[in-house]
């Protein structure tokens, strides 16, 4: 038998039109991003470090000072951003230009799986029920693509993308957002977090993401009785990570139950008057982000 030509050597069209449709999807994504000045991914690799709370506070702080801000909850299976930003639960309006995002506190435009799911329902996909490992990640990437490309974000100054935990998911997100303006990696002082976030840094550097930064969450606890700040973790992983990798540490955020309490009721703590060290640190982080993006003077 003669040698077959390879797929790429066979140039005639097949009529299946699959590559054309994938290309059209990516073009739609690029068109949507062309109206967004900066896309900032808030990631970690590690779960439970406070990515969503920091995303919500960044989005709210930016919107409160008059910037046009979108917040995309890329954590499809553990969505929380809509609640933290008090996004309207009114039905999302569909138009030929896409799906209108929900509007949250300070006018942040929000899309989250939380807005689409029935009460207390998990993310489950329709059949077939077996062999989900074959197609599930493809479907989730497709869903995320629609969150970014099919939402009528309008012109935005900043789109904050709250990434799910897991370096694999970060990689998938980068396939849809290949040129983020910045990736803010949330970590804690713990050694475990340091190990995981170091892997994310390697991944992001290999992908050529130009601006990486660290935010150390839960960096200390201020005793409300005596006012002294004590470390929550024995380790100093965040600073060690910054020193070892050269990724700048933009913020050290103290642990404050008020952060969770405020996002629980959909009013991020940065919207409260100055005075709380946690809120001040989050505002300083917002300012640092804008400075780095050259949106404000240092």
């Amino acid at each position: 038998m003669a040698r077959f030509r390879t797929y790429n050597e066979v140039l005639e069209p097949t009529g299946a039109k699959v590559p054309e449709q994938v290309r059209a999807q990516l073009e739609r994504l690029a068109r949507r991003f062309s109206a967004i000045r900066h896309t900032v991914i808030v990631a970690s690799g590690k779960g439970g470090v406070g990515k969503s709370a920091i995303s919500a506070n960044l989005a709210a702080a930016l919107a409160a000072e008059g910037r046009r801000v979108g917040a995309a909850d890329a954590d499809l299976n553990g969505p929380s951003l809509a609640r933290m930003l008090a996004a309207s639960t009114a039905p999302l309006a569909v138009s030929p230009n896409g799906v209108a995002p929900a509007v949250g506190v300070a006018g942040v435009r929000v899309v989250s799986m939380d807005l689409l799911l029935a009460a207390d329902a998990p993310v489950r996909w329709r059949d077939p029920g077996h062999a989900g490992f074959v197609w599930q990640s493809t479907l989730e990437t497709g869903a995320l693509r629609e969150f970014l490309a099919d939402v009528d974000w309008g012109a935005l100054d900043l789109l904050i993308v709250d990434a799910p935990p897991g370096t694999d998911k970060l990689q998938r997100l980068l396939s849809l957002v290949p040129r983020p303006s910045a990736v803010l990696l949330v970590t804690t002082p713990s050694e475990t977090a340091r190990h995981v976030v170091a892997r994310s840094i390697s991944l992001l550097r290999a992908a050529g993401v130009p601006r990486l930064a660290l935010a150390a969450n839960m960096a200390g606890y201020r005793c409300p009785a005596c006012g002294r700040t004590e470390p929550l973790f024995a380790a100093d992983g965040a600073r060690r990570l910054a020193a070892a990798t050269g990724v700048p540490l933009w913020a050290e955020l103290p642990f404050d139950p008020a952060i969770a309490a405020s996002t629980d009721v959909g009013r991020p703590i940065v919207l409260e008057p100055a005075g709380s060290p946690a809120a001040d640190a989050l505002r300083a982080l917002t300012r640092r982000l804008l400075t780095e993006l050259r949106e404000v003077d240092p």
Binding site: R124, W125, R126
Partner: peptide
């Protein structure tokens, strides 16, 4: 392709 067609077709327990 409809806006959010994939999510709308495939999500099992949407609102």
């Amino acid at each position: 392709e409809q806006p959010m067609e994939l999510v709308r077709q495939q999500l099992a327990e949407g609102r």
